[in-house]
Amino acid sequence: MKASAGAVAGTMLANQLTSALAQTQAPAALEGQDLANLEKGLQQVLGKGFKDMTVSQQVKLVAPTIAESGANVPVEIEASLPADQVKAIHCFSDKNANPLLFTVILNGVLPYYATRVRVAETAPVRAIVETKDGKFLMASQSVRVTVGGCG
């Protein structure tokens, strides 16, 4: 009796855990995210909202988790897609006054881009790869900033 009750409690706990896990995975709550500001930038630049973005493993974003200086954060974006399928790479940061960091239109080079950006305060950096068939693939990573780069 006791053992079965334990088993039931165990499965309940497991269910709770998996649902909690699913919840954290679905909206991908990142440190310092500001979807309202990001949405504004996305609508302005792409004419699409945050819900139109597909989180994809095919996009690799390399950025430091803790930046030495917000004025100079190295960002590297690479997509594991054929070069002729990628149209453009966009990069956004949630809390910057102007969320758009840069747009790169690729026309013959490999889907790779590296640069250094300013991040105003601790917020996720989002790499968005626009494909020729109109899909937006996204990868995000939170960057912790101690010294802001825009003020």
């Binding site: 006054a97 960091l101 840069f102 026309n107 950006v117 300013r118």
Partner: peptide, 29 residues
């Protein structure tokens, strides 16, 4: 703009959020 033999291969439009003395790096075959 990056051109190869006068053909545009890549174009970057940086916003204000780009660092001072910026680096722009591409890869090609």
């Amino acid at each position: 703009n990056v051109l190869m033999d006068n053909q545009l291969i890549a174009q970057v439009k940086p916003g204000p959020g780009t660092s001072a003395n910026p680096l722009f790096a591409f890869k090609m075959k």
